[in-house]
Simulated scan of single mutants.
Amino acid sequence: MPDRRHIKGLLAIAEEGEFKHRILVCTAPEPRILGGVEILPVKEFLERLWNDAYWS
C-alpha cells in the first residue's frame, strides 16, 4: 500500500509550480488521495486515460 515515502517526489514537484494532476499509478486495490496526490490502481488509471478524463 503506497504511503508518503512513495509520493515524496510528487509532493516535492508541487513546489515547482501548478500541475493539473499528480498521480501515482500502482497496484493499490482502491483509488484514494494522499497529500493531494491521486493514488490509482493501474486499471482505473488506464480507463480514465482512455476515456480522456485527463485531457478535457
Score class of each variant (00 low, 15 high):
residue 1 M to L: 14
residue 1 M to H: 15
residue 1 M to G: 15
residue 1 M to D: 15
residue 2 P to R: 09
residue 2 P to V: 14
residue 2 P to F: 11
residue 4 R to M: 10
residue 4 R to H: 13
residue 5 R to V: 14
residue 5 R to H: 14
residue 6 H to P: 01
residue 6 H to D: 15
residue 6 H to G: 04
residue 7 I to M: 02
residue 8 K to Y: 14
residue 9 G to R: 12
residue 10 L to D: 08
residue 10 L to Y: 12
residue 11 L to E: 10
residue 11 L to H: 04
residue 12 A to G: 03
residue 13 I to F: 10
residue 13 I to V: 15
residue 13 I to H: 08
residue 14 A to H: 06
residue 15 E to R: 13
residue 15 E to G: 02
residue 16 E to L: 10
residue 17 G to N: 11
residue 18 E to T: 10
residue 20 K to C: 00
residue 22 R to G: 03
residue 24 L to P: 11
residue 25 V to L: 02
residue 26 C to N: 09
residue 26 C to R: 03
residue 26 C to M: 03
residue 27 T to D: 12
residue 27 T to Q: 08
residue 27 T to P: 01
residue 28 A to V: 15
residue 29 P to T: 13
residue 31 P to Q: 09
residue 32 R to G: 09
residue 32 R to V: 04
residue 33 I to H: 05
residue 33 I to S: 13
residue 33 I to K: 13
residue 34 L to C: 08
residue 34 L to M: 15
residue 34 L to D: 12
residue 35 G to H: 10
residue 37 V to C: 06
residue 38 E to F: 07
residue 38 E to D: 11
residue 38 E to H: 10
residue 41 P to F: 04
residue 41 P to C: 03
residue 41 P to D: 06
residue 43 K to R: 14
residue 44 E to W: 02
residue 45 F to N: 01
residue 45 F to A: 01
residue 45 F to L: 01
residue 45 F to Y: 13
residue 46 L to W: 05
residue 47 E to L: 01
residue 48 R to Y: 00
residue 49 L to R: 04
residue 50 W to M: 03
residue 50 W to Q: 04
residue 50 W to A: 02
residue 51 N to I: 00
residue 51 N to H: 09
residue 52 D to T: 03
residue 52 D to C: 04
residue 54 Y to D: 00
residue 55 W to R: 06
